[in-house]
Nucleic acid binder design. Structure first.
Length: 285
DNA sequence: GCCCAGGTATAAA
DNA sequence: TTTATACATGGG
């Protein structure tokens, strides 16, 4: 069982190497968390506003003003707190020495269990885009079409977006991606793409299913399945990652990373971005 | 102003 | 089947 304590501030969790807020919330897997004071973050998940911070005095992660019930129901699953990322990191490290090196750069990364629909939309909006702007678009999407909740807005349901036209989405200023969002909403709403079935569907089939949506290619499908459906075997590949793989793991295939390939991918992504030697090795054409 | 962003659809080779 | 371009917008 997960060891947490209830205090005046909320719920507190002993700080470990396996959970780092910056690495987890600032790595491009989610777009609705904002940095607050003193290294804290705030965001809205499942209609609940949360402030979360690391307290170096008490050596705890603090989930502020949270009830036990809410913590159990929302935050444990969302932050995937019952999965042993330390064990996964060690087993991945045993697989390959270069991967072991990469893992050291972001040992505190966790793969969030985001809402599948929100993740799908977020990664549709992420294509050929940068993170600050993606965040802005997602925020406008929620403010414009999401139901209000204390602290902000929910992410709008597919049902709501399915009624909208490309013109209706103009306030988002998301450019050519508006028609992609419409396509996603309509295919989900008319049942062509079943959000619930994607959790257990064979991965190849799941990928094909998502790619029926106009604007969802292999990269977006892989990101959505990894970050939205927690399909950890998924390994988002872009030009950058292809080069990183060729440079760091010549001859190695994604399957070699096993069922936690997606976590390996996050380690590699962070490592490549932070290590200038690796960067110079493959990014300059 | 200029470059470009964790891509994809579409039209040529 | 592989390789080039346009795409909308705005952050840096």
């Amino acid at each position: 069982m997960l060891a947490y304590t209830k205090t005046q501030r909320g719920i507190e969790l002993p700080q470990t190497a396996d959970f780092d807020l910056d690495q987890t919330l600032n790595c491009g897997q989610c777009f609705r968390w904002y940095a607050g004071e003193k290294g804290s973050y705030f965001g809205i998940v499942a209609g609940k506003w949360l402030r979360i911070s690391a307290d170096s005095e008490t050596k705890t992660i603090v989930f502020h003003n949270t009830t036990e019930e809410e913590f159990e129901k929302i935050w444990i699953p969302y932050f995937d707190l019952e999965m042993d990322y330390g064990a996964i990191r060690r087993s991945l490290s045993d697989l390959d020495p270069v991967l072991a090196c990469a893992a050291q750069y972001a040992p505190g990364i966790r793969i969030l269990r985001q809402d599948p629909w929100e993740a799908l939309c977020s990664f549709i909006l992420s294509q050929n885009n940068n993170i600050p702007r993606i965040k802005g678009i997602v925020e406008r999407l929620c403010q414009t079409f999401g139901d209000p909740v204390p602290g902000g807005y929910r992410f709008p349901e597919a049902k709501r977006l399915a009624k909208l036209s490309v013109e209706d989405l103009a306030p988002l200023r998301c450019g050519f991606r508006a028609k992609y969002l419409c396509s996603a909403a309509q295919l989900v709403e008319n049942g062509t793409v079943s959000l619930s079935e994607l959790e257990t569907m064979p991965i190849e089939q799941a990928r094909e299913s998502l790619m029926q949506i106009t604007g969802v290619g292999p990269k977006v499908a892989e990101c959505a399945l990894l970050y939205g459906w927690h399909r950890l075997e998924c390994f988002p590949m872009d030009v950058w990652m292809k080069r990183a793989m060729a440079y760091l793991f010549p001859g190695k295939k994604i399957e070699d990373f096993g069922r936690y390939a997606g976590i390996a991918q996050q380690y590699i992504f962070h490592y490549s971005r932070q290590n200038s030697q690796v960067f110079d090795g493959f990014i300059k054409k």
